[in-house]
Simulated assay, not measured.
Amino acid sequence: MTLYAADKLIAQARVLAAEYRRTMGKPLPGISNEIAEYDAIKLLQLEPKPTGEGGYDAVDSKRGDKLIQIKSRTIFDESKSGQRIGQLKLDKDWDSVVLVLMDEDYEPYEIYEAERDDIIEYVGKSSSNRAKRGAMSVARFKIIGRLAWTRENGFEPEVWDNQAD
């Protein structure tokens, strides 16, 4: 599949997912993760994981073959608190997690990155059973992590330094 074909399919998936939610009143299961993975790989210039590998979704070869788990959250109502991200795979091999935040049209507007050590430290200090299982709120992830990309500015250079060749 060519990059053009993938871009076109993802664009169609965005439209379908947004229209499905508007019509059915609930999100189309699984679609936001697929879109977010595609966006993170493209926007952060990552490489997809090799087929069959588990625990992570992409590799950043420009930062020492860093293994990256990709999570997503589509924010339909910013006034609602308590938005949660999917469970982190704490028992798997990965170096950091990127969280792709998308708007109601499934377009990315911010990407945050949190290092494994920082996440493990939070989980270890937390008394929450949810945290011990790898569940976390978007707000907590933003506190632990750092902004890596925005729709307005692209890469946040002081954070995401994979531009050196």
Rank of each mutant, 00 (worst) to 15 (best):
D105K: 10
R73N: 11
I70L: 06
L88W: 04
R130Q: 12
E158R: 05
N162H: 08
R73P: 02
M1W: 08
A17V: 03
G30P: 02
Y109W: 15
P157G: 09
S137N: 12
A18T: 07
S128E: 11
E110P: 01
A114V: 01
V100A: 00
A148H: 04
P48S: 11
M1F: 12
G82C: 08
R133P: 06
K49M: 01
E110D: 12
D95V: 03
D93H: 15
R133C: 09
G30A: 07
D103P: 01
A36V: 04
M102V: 04
S127Y: 10
E53G: 07
I144C: 04
T74M: 08
K92D: 11
L99I: 03
R133M: 15
R63V: 09
R116C: 07
Q69D: 09
W94P: 00
L28W: 12
D39W: 08
A114S: 12
L46M: 03
L9G: 06
E158K: 05
Q12A: 14
P157T: 09
S79C: 05
L46N: 03
V138G: 01
Y4H: 14
W94G: 00
A17L: 02
A11F: 10
I68G: 01
N33H: 12
A131Y: 09
I10R: 04
K80P: 03
R151K: 15
A58I: 01
M136E: 02
A18M: 02
K80C: 05
L9A: 15
L16Y: 14
I120G: 06
L46C: 08
G30F: 10
Y106S: 08
I111V: 09
D91A: 09
L16D: 14
T74I: 03
I35F: 04
E34A: 14
D105I: 00
L44H: 12
D118R: 11
M136N: 04
P27H: 07
Q87K: 13
M1N: 06
L9D: 11
K142H: 12
A17N: 03
A131D: 10
K26F: 15
E110K: 12
G124W: 11
A5C: 06
Y4M: 09
Q87A: 12
Q12L: 07
E53Y: 14
S128N: 11
E104F: 05
V59A: 02
P157L: 06
R151I: 04
A11L: 08
L88P: 00
A6C: 13
Y109E: 11
K49T: 00
T74D: 06
G25Q: 09
D105T: 10
L28R: 01
E107F: 04
R22L: 12
D93T: 10
G86Q: 06
K142G: 07
D105V: 00
S72R: 02
G30T: 15
D118G: 05
E158D: 15
Q12M: 14
A36Y: 03
K80F: 04
I119R: 04
L43F: 06
A135P: 00
K132T: 12
F76I: 14
Y122Q: 09
G82K: 03
Y56F: 15
L90P: 05
L28A: 08
D118L: 15
L43W: 07
D117H: 13
I85K: 00
L88F: 10
K89R: 13
